[in-house]
């Protein structure tokens, strides 16, 4: 459903992404892995309309998104949960979630969607009135994902959702990602936790200096010697 063709991004002189092409299909978890600075975050930002100097083509279910502004892309159904959570720090959990349903279409289904998020993430319900800045890292990540789900997205993009979380929480996040996919929302996930993400991804791409150097089924990639050497130190 998401089709990315020849996506390039240039930051001044730095070519951060060069002619990247890939796709995400309904019911899939797609992994995006690669070393630091490979261009993973840039890819998500280019799709969500956050970066300006992008070229190439992005469409969602046949709808061309290439020239849309960030807020219009959200309205079209792609939600980007950024690296480092980036909540609205001095708003409560509930306010953060409600802002997730800011778009005109999403607003109508706000209450319904809030219930859905609270059933998916019951711990947040207890913390409704707490300021986001006072939450733990894990809780913040939950709110960030919950906020992303509030607009009933057609595709959810997560940038390093497990960054800095304890192993138990990492497991929990991946369970959540699977649940989201199983509830019908495909997920494009960028991760440093290569083993985890490849185990759970239906398909994955490996980026290096802005190029896709390898792709395939998650478990197949895990068997690949080159990848094991480069990313797992094996």
């Amino acid at each position: 459903m998401l089709n990315v063709r020849d996506l390039s991004v240039r930051y001044g002189d730095v070519l951060a992404l060069e002619k990247l092409s890939f796709s995400v299909d309904a019911g899939q978890i797609i992994g995006l892995v690669g070393s630091n600075g490979a261009g993973k975050s840039t890819t998500l930002a280019a799709i969500s309309g956050l970066v300006k100097g992008r070229t190439g083509h992005v469409d969602l279910a046949g709808q061309d998104l290439t020239s849309l502004a960030a807020h219009d892309i959200v309205a079209q159904g792609i939600v980007h949960v950024p690296e480092g959570r980036r909540l609205f720090p001095f708003m409560t959990v509930q306010e953060n979630l409600e802002l997730g349903a800011y778009g005109r279409a999403a607003r109508v289904r706000r209450e319904e969607q809030l219930d859905y998020v609270f059933t998916l993430l019951p711990k947040l319900a207890e913390r409704r009135q707490q300021l986001a800045v006072t939450l733990s890292g894990g809780e913040q990540q939950m709110v960030a994902i919950g906020r992303g789900l509030m607009s009933c997205p057609k595709l959810l993009m997560l940038d390093e959702p497990t960054l800095g979380l304890a192993p138990m929480l990492v497991e929990e996040i991946f369970r959540l990602v699977r649940a989201i996919r199983d509830n019908g929302v495909p997920v494009l996930i960028v991760e440093q936790q290569v083993v985890h993400v490849l185990e759970c991804a239906d398909y994955a791409y490996v980026l290096e200096s802005g190029h896709c150097v390898m792709q395939g089924n998650g478990r197949d990639l895990l068997q690949d010697d080159g990848l094991r050497r480069a990313y797992l130190g094996l």
């Binding site: 956050l50 960030a70 309205a75 950024p82 980036r86 609205f88 997730g100 800011y102 778009g103």
Partner: peptide, 15 residues
């Protein structure tokens, strides 16, 4: 208020 607190996130929730 959201924009004041984080412009980037504001864009990402569709503002």
């Amino acid at each position: 208020r959201a924009t004041a607190q984080d412009r980037r996130s504001a864009r990402l929730v569709g503002i």
